[in-house]
Design a binder for these strands. Structure first.
Lengths: 200, 200
DNA sequence: GTCTATACCCTGATAGAC
DNA sequence: GTCTATCAGGGTATAGAC
């Protein structure tokens, strides 16, 4: 199965967008890497923005929240520390998934420049994670598994390091520097956090 | 005291760089906002990159670490929670300082695109904060003020939310949305964190 | 679906008059 | 120190042949 030209364009565009941002990537560069002329791009996409929109709408909704929100949250929350471990593992895995990683890099570049990306970041990315986590912490509190506190604050406090460690790992890997030390922080975060909140 | 043309150029350039990034800002836009012709820019700076370098070298070293590393770290660390409160307050204040805020936005845009900015982020920004915090936590552990743990991990766990909350506040303010809810997170973070680590 | 050719705009930068 | 004039290069996009 050969990849269609359209898919090749999308792959190359995501690659370049994640390295140089939207404005820093030219139709010329995309077509050159795909192996066609600039004008041939316009047989597949209306214009440059159309390429971007296609990529964004296919990658915007976080695969993490989809993964978890399949079943009712109770089943997960009652697993306590294991739930947090699984959540963090999914989060960490995303930074090793090729497309997710590239989209994350692109999102970071555009976050301060594009309102559309900011909305995706908050709605699809951030809020959906906070919702799952705060619900889970609420249940854990009810069950007496963890100390009582504001579940939403706890969710923020739990999620922030995961985001920051992912960002650090991404940055280090750009320069092909060793990111294994940062990678261990994901697991250490779980141990540290659980140690602090658990009633055990 | 009138501002010199050179300073006007630097101010306008930082403003635009923080909104559109380095590549997205043209000499024409800068000169236009300053009120001179493109060519007049070159009487003050060798080229576009020279403008950037001047800005970066004047804003790179975080004012926060300078503020704190004046005195030996012991004096601060022994204050326990108050030290953390002061640290977070300085961190929060930076996001309300006009130039610091603009430089932060610029740094976020360029983090995935420029190796130079990545080095500044890690060396001037991140590592210096981690060093201060880990030293402070180490002292607090010795004094029995907080539970024993890995001081560097604790520093990472303490700093990550501060960074993430600052980033959220910055993003919200771009769209002129209400950031007061995020602003309270800085203080809540201190209470939450201290509650967890203190032996009291 | 891809090509050549072309239109037109924006970019950073320089030369030389004032 | 600022201006006008000018340049080469790269940007998006379209028309029309194959």
């Amino acid at each position: 199965m050969e990849k269609s030209t359209k898919d090749k364009i999308l792959d190359v565009a995501l690659e370049l967008f994640s390295q140089k941002g939207y404005k820093g990537t030219s139709i010329r560069m995309i077509s050159g890497k795909v192996g066609i002329r600039e004008s041939a791009i316009y047989n597949h996409f209306k214009n440059k923005e159309d390429i971007l929109d296609t990529i964004v709408s296919s990658l915007a909704s976080s695969s993490l929240s989809l993964l978890i929100s399949q079943k009712p949250i109770n089943e997960f929350a009652l697993k306590g520390k294991s739930f947090l471990r699984e959540f963090a593992a999914s989060f960490k895995l995303l930074s090793y998934d090729n497309k997710s990683e590239k989209f994350f890099r692109f999102m970071m570049i555009e976050l301060m420049q594009s309102k559309k990306i900011r909305e995706i970041f908050f709605n699809d990315f951030h809020k959906s994670h906070l919702k799952i986590l705060s619900q889970a912490f609420f249940i854990m509190m009810q069950e007496g598994m963890i100390h009582s506190s504001d579940p939403m604050l706890m969710a923020q406090e739990f999620l922030s390091p995961l985001f920051f460690y992912r960002m650090q790992a991404t940055i280090l890997r750009i320069d092909k520097e060793n990111s294994s030390q940062v990678a261990t922080l994901f697991e250490k975060h779980i141990d540290f956090f659980w140690e602090m909140i658990s009633t055990g």
